[in-house]
Simulated scan of single mutants.
Amino acid sequence: MGVAGAALAQGAPLKTAVDGTFAPHAFPNLQGGVQGFNVDLAQEIGRKLKREVTVDSAQFSGLLPALQAGTYDFIIAPVTVNKERAENYLFPEGYLNTDFQLVVKRDAPEIAKLDDLKGKVVTVNRGSAYDTWARGLEKEVGWTVESYGTQTDAVQAVLSGRAVANITGNTVAAWAAKQNPGLKLSYLHSTGLVWSAAVRKDRPEMRAMLETAIECMKQDGSLAKIHEKWFGYAPKPGSAAATVFPGAGVPDMPGYDPAARPAGCS
């Protein structure tokens, strides 16, 4: 029985969660639920595995602790895969590249380098990779980092003048600037990292199911359709959204298994 067949046999709904303030990846809809790239991604994973997937919304800082506590089967909110996280969680292959970008007020001076923010206040979403990165540079850059429970509040602090810039993912930054004429994009920091779904280390079978589902989405074009729906353009050749990686997991990260996997797409 293949991975999808095993998933169908188990039958129980899979539980996952997003940060519902992280547009365009997850944000409120008019019906009182959440919509966005990662919500569609979760539902397509469910279709590939022939399993119902329920998507909760909560602050990002609480998602990984809830996963560890067994509340969720996996976390579909964008989780940046870095060495520290890969040592503590299992990840299927990445579905999007992620770079860090600054969002500033439209009339603010252009930020050409991080040193331009010496003595300034920047905001981040609490518990995110941007939070960790920015705090790690506090002494070197000389900025003050303020963490907010939601990405919406972190951006609002820039609009209100309480901070000079918000540090977030490039897709989220582009969406914020597109939706708000008072904002613009500024300095881009290339990371070489990807976003993936987080799984507890004692659930290798869950990682295997997600790996197959994500690979199938790349192969049949369903991931590209979701990408174009929310970002307005197709995945670029060679990007994580368009590339099926060998083995299981994120190459060059702890937990990666280079062994060849059987084809699981029907």
Rank of each mutant, 00 (worst) to 15 (best):
A240P: 08
E228W: 01
Y233G: 02
W230N: 04
P262V: 01
A242D: 15
A260N: 13
G249D: 06
G232V: 00
D257Q: 15
A234W: 08
K218E: 05
P251D: 10
G247A: 02
Q219V: 11
P246M: 05
G255R: 03
P237D: 08
L223C: 04
V244T: 09
P246Y: 03
R261E: 01
G221C: 08
G232N: 03
D252Q: 14
P237Y: 01
P254V: 00
A248H: 05
D220S: 06
E228F: 00
G255N: 11
I214P: 07
S222H: 03
M217W: 04
P251S: 13
G221M: 08
A248G: 10
W230A: 07
Y233E: 09
G255L: 09
P258F: 12
A224E: 07
S239N: 10
P246H: 02
Q219D: 05
C216K: 05
A234R: 14
R261H: 02
Q219P: 02
P251K: 07
E228R: 11
C216D: 05
G238D: 11
E215K: 14
A263T: 13
D252T: 14
Y256K: 07
P235W: 03
Y256N: 04
D220R: 10
F245T: 15
A260R: 14
I226V: 04
P246E: 01
K225E: 14
T212K: 09
M217S: 01
A240F: 08
H227S: 08
G232D: 03
D252C: 05
Y233N: 09
F245I: 14
A248R: 15
P237I: 00
G249Y: 00
A259Y: 02
L223K: 04
P235R: 10
R261D: 00
A259L: 05
P258T: 07
F231Q: 07
A224K: 04
S222Q: 05
K236V: 14
V244E: 01
K225T: 13
D257N: 15
P258M: 12
P237R: 06
A213N: 10
P251A: 12
G232M: 02
F231A: 07
F245Q: 15
G249A: 11
